[in-house]
């Protein structure tokens, strides 16, 4: 469960022996340049395809229109009205889901008996597609921001919970014994050994959770609301405005990339011992 959804760029490549000396900065710059060129070519093809009537603009819109729509939204105040809402929902849901999932996962991992007792219940709820809870949440919490936050938190909770649980379970018993012989009490064992040791696995959960946090927020907005990017999306398609729909998707990509970047930065700092690997 935890292996998928991890960006390709984080897959570790082995150091290979090369025939020639290379300048890593130059290689990097060239790579980025080629990527940008590729992106530009794709946009140009899209635009040209629509202009020369090879593609029907009604279904695919075209890059110039999409940028135009984004510009209109920026000027017309729609961006300020809708974007922060979605970010806030995703962010708060993410934080709450992570906190609760982390704590519960920790308790389950540390107290085996609790885990044994509650295991079937957790499995049952886990196998439920969480977005299916959205209609009930709307009934319970209304169509405001609360429903989206709770939906997001529920999705994130399970991802973080499972990884934290596995991480705490995996902590070396020997290491715990060694530290106890040094005179460490339970709190010190938890703080100095179990938490940092589980952190690697917990972060896998966090990173996988970012895109899911947006799913919670956007699905919630699409079902019932008059604000947020999910609303922009359904509202645009409702008016057959494909440019608007694509513009909303662009916004989601930007937000998702940004949130993911924050997690990666945090991970780089907290797990800096891993980056020094030879």
């Amino acid at each position: 469960m935890s292996d998928r959804s991890i960006p390709l760029s984080t897959v570790k490549k082995d150091d290979v022996l090369l025939e020639h000396k290379i300048n890593p900065v130059a290689v990097r710059i060239r790579l980025i340049a080629i990527r940008l060129a590729l992106f530009a070519v794709l946009l140009a093809l899209w635009e040209a395809g629509v202009r020369y009537k090879l593609i029907d603009s009604f279904f695919t819109s075209q890059p110039s229109m999409i940028f135009q729509r984004l510009y209109e939204w920026a000027v017309g105040g729609q961006l300020v009205q809708h974007v922060p809402i979605t970010i806030l929902e995703a962010f708060l849901g993410f934080v709450i889901g992570t906190a609760v999932g982390g704590i519960v996962g920790f308790i389950f991992g540390w107290f085996e008996k609790v885990a044994d007792l509650l295991d079937p219940f957790i499995i049952a709820i886990y196998s439920l597609p969480k977005v299916a809870l959205a209609p009930l949440f709307i009934l319970w919490f209304g169509i405001g921001i609360e429903t989206k936050i709770i939906l997001t938190a529920t999705i994130v909770f399970f991802l973080v919970f499972y990884n934290t649980y596995a991480g705490v379970r995996d902590v070396s018993r020997e290491l715990v014994d060694i530290v106890r012989l040094m005179g460490a009490g339970t709190l010190q064992v938890l703080w100095r050994v179990v938490l940092p040791s589980a952190m690697t696995v917990i972060f896998v959960g966090l990173r996988v959770s970012v895109p899911y946090a947006l799913i919670g927020a956007v699905v919630g907005e699409m079902m019932a609301s008059n604000r947020g990017i999910g609303f922009l999306l359904t509202n645009s398609t409702g008016q057959f405005d494909t440019a608007g729909a694509f513009a909303a998707l662009v916004l989601l990509v930007i937000i998702s990339t940004f949130l993911n970047g924050m997690i990666v930065a945090l991970e780089k700092y907290l797990l800096r011992w891993k980056k020094t690997q030879r």
């Binding site: 020997e174 014994d177 060694i178 012989l181 100095r192 050994v193 940092p196 040791s197 011992w273 891993k274």
Partner: peptide
């Protein structure tokens, strides 16, 4: 007592 095991069990993050 001190305890040294086969796996060195160093704290990888420190």
């Amino acid at each position: 007592l001190g305890y040294i095991t086969q796996r060195d069990n160093l704290l990888e993050w420190s």
